[in-house]
């Protein structure tokens, strides 16, 4: 039986490991190498590593840095931030990433999803969708939550799927860093609209949040960051709780 993945998410800005709240209020929380080593020692299911600076500054991914990170990972590593060309994908896979996460580049050039999936396989291509709640309903935002796109997340997720994306990484900007729970409604609507796996992100603060977003939000996998930084909970605690709640997880 397929186990639900619990995926720590690490965010980098200016070479520093940071945490955000609602995509703002950047807190520098320390050494990213230490964080990767801790998660590797914890035998986590997978790791997502996003370089915010690369996308905001429009520069190339930091291959040396990703190489250092990959060296410490013996589980699947998804890398995002500034991935804009097939060459970027090739080089990231070459330094040890297993999947790439596309956000801005997919919004700007949806055909890039198809090109990437075609060359490297759909399983390598994760499309990241950041969503904010507005008076008009849910809206996809770009540039790390700064600018609205006018797109609704379901439509965009379906397009990403049809273009060849292997997975969707769905983040609720409103819930990010708040540790009050995921956006269940948002997750459910996207998860039910596509037949590719959806990873829920943004809001985890205690063990029950994970059960809720999987059981009620239909998430196929869960990502989290704040809970590992600010509480005593480890990925094992979360997975044990999932199993107790009848959700298969890998210990």
């Amino acid at each position: 039986m397929l186990k639900t993945r619990v995926i720590p998410c690490l965010l980098l800005k200016d070479n520093r490991l940071i945490k955000t709240i609602q995509f703002g209020e950047y807190r520098n929380i320390g050494s990213y190498i230490a964080a990767v080593k801790v998660f590797n020692a914890r035998d986590v299911d997978e790791l997502v590593f996003l370089d915010m600076s690369a996308s905001l500054e429009g520069r190339d991914p930091l291959y040396h840095l990703i190489s250092d990170v990959a060296r410490e990972c013996f589980m699947p590593l998804a890398v995002g931030g500034g991935v804009q060309t097939l060459d970027h994908i090739a080089r990231l896979l070459g330094v040890g990433a297993d999947k790439v996460v596309l956000n801005t580049s997919a919004l700007d050039h949806p055909e890039f999803i198809t090109q990437g999936a075609g060359r490297y396989g759909a399983q390598c291509i994760v499309v990241s969708i950041d969503v904010k709640k507005t008076d008009r309903g849910y809206e996809v935002y770009r540039d790390h939550g700064k600018n609205p796109t006018g797109l609704d997340p379901i439509t965009w997720a379906k397009e990403a799927e049809s273009r060849g994306a292997g997975e969707i990484f769905l983040t609720s900007i409103d819930q990010d860093g708040m540790m009050k729970g995921y956006d269940i409604g948002l997750t459910k609507s996207v998860a039910e609209a596509v037949s590719i796996p959806v990873i829920a992100s943004g809001g985890a603060g205690d063990l029950n949040h994970f059960v809720e977003v999987i059981r009620d939000g239909r998430a196929d996998a869960v990502a989290a960051a704040s809970i590992f930084q600010y509480t005593q909970y480890t990925p094992q605690d979360i997975k044990q709780h999932l199993i107790k709640s009848g959700i298969p997880a890998r210990l």
């Binding site: 186990k3 993945r5 299911d45 399983q123 997975e167 037949s195 590719i196 796996p197 196929d220």
Partner: peptide, 14 residues
């Protein structure tokens, strides 16, 4: 049934 079993098959399975 791809509504129930999402494809690709991604993750840890026994």
């Amino acid at each position: 049934d791809e509504g129930k079993y999402k494809i690709p098959h991604v993750g840890w399975n026994n």
